[in-house]
Write a protein that binds this DNA or RNA. Structure first.
Length: 283
DNA sequence: AGCGTCTCCTGCTTGC
DNA sequence: TGCAAGCAGGAGACGC
């Protein structure tokens, strides 16, 4: 499910519900996510207060007042839902963790495919530094700029679409927004990364397109393809603004273009693009 | 080293 | 209608 915009929305929801509140109890229903839920999670955060909720790329960081930090990744289908402790709600399938907060909110982590994970680190722990240092720059931060992108892709032979999905190059872009950003920038997903790196105009267009699309998606609540919802259960709207994603064989949205959208596979994942508006570079 | 493929998991859609 | 295959928003482990 979630790419940077969807994670940003969940992060903001989490912040609204967790900030300055204390974990009263934690119930774990199934330990097996992408990584096993830390055995000490419940005891580590019981009666501990949340100081800050942050996001880098697709990761959510929950800073606690005991010098620990929760790191959450939502995988493909991870999500949080919130309700009041007195609300009567029917059991939700694939609920793996339930957090009961001092503000009487109940926060559920739900993840159908279990590709998400939750880790807990001591802020002074070496492991946490190692983790942080592995992260690529966040796609909507100022650190993601032409110099940075060129440096990362100038020697890469992989196609530019796959490069955008590499979280060490830039963090936060997933399969939907990679296709959408390349369309907006007028760059073929088949272009070789190192060739794009040589074309400063393309690089600048690409960075502008990525930031524009991600911010635009955040404004409208992200994209709901199957199951992205905010924590109050509301869908996003960006899927109605897709120009290429999931639009195979439909007419290109560029009114001056008569072509239809193509679907191809790159590195095992689908890519959508317009051959006419995103002409491949020669060579 | 760098790149492509496989894999973890569940559920929905498609085609026979 | 039933069943199997294929695909899905991510990303780490492998193998060539």
């Amino acid at each position: 499910m979630p790419e940077l915009p969807e994670v940003e929305i969940i992060k903001n929801n989490l912040s609204d519900n967790l900030l300055e509140n204390t974990f009263l109890s934690v119930e774990i229903y199934s330990e097996k996510l992408r990584y096993k839920i830390p055995y000490n999670l419940a005891e580590s955060i019981k009666n501990v207060k949340v100081l800050k909720v942050d996001r880098i790329a697709k990761y959510i960081f929950v800073y606690l007042n005991n010098n620990k930090i929760l790191i959450i990744h939502l995988g493909m289908t991870g999500n949080f839902l919130v309700n009041h402790i007195n609300d009567e709600i029917t059991p939700i399938k694939h609920t793996h963790i339930k957090f009961i907060m001092s503000n009487s909110k109940v926060i559920r982590y739900i993840d159908i495919r279990r590709f998400g994970f939750i880790k807990i680190y001591d802020l002074k722990e070496k492991e946490f530094d190692i983790f942080k240092n592995k992260l690529g720059v966040d796609a909507i931060s100022n650190n993601f700029n032409s110099k940075n992108l060129i440096n990362h892709i100038k020697n890469k032979k992989i196609n530019i679409k796959s490069a955008l999905l590499d979280q060490k190059i830039v963090g936060g872009i997933g399969n939907i927004y990679a296709s959408e950003a390349l369309f907006k920038a007028g760059i073929s997903p088949l272009d070789c990364s190192k060739d794009v790196a040589k074309n400063i105009k393309k690089i600048n267009n690409l960075i502008k397109a990525i930031k524009f699309i991600l911010r635009d998606a955040i404004k409208v609540g992200g994209s709901t393809i199957k199951n992205h919802k905010n924590m109050n259960g509301e869908s996003g709207y960006f899927q109605y603004k897709f120009n290429v994603y999931n639009r195979e064989d439909l007419k290109c949205n560029n009114i001056k273009c008569e072509s239809s959208i193509k679907k191809i596979r790159q590195s095992g994942r689908s890519t959508f693009y317009c051959e006419n508006c995103q002409e491949k570079e020669n060579g």
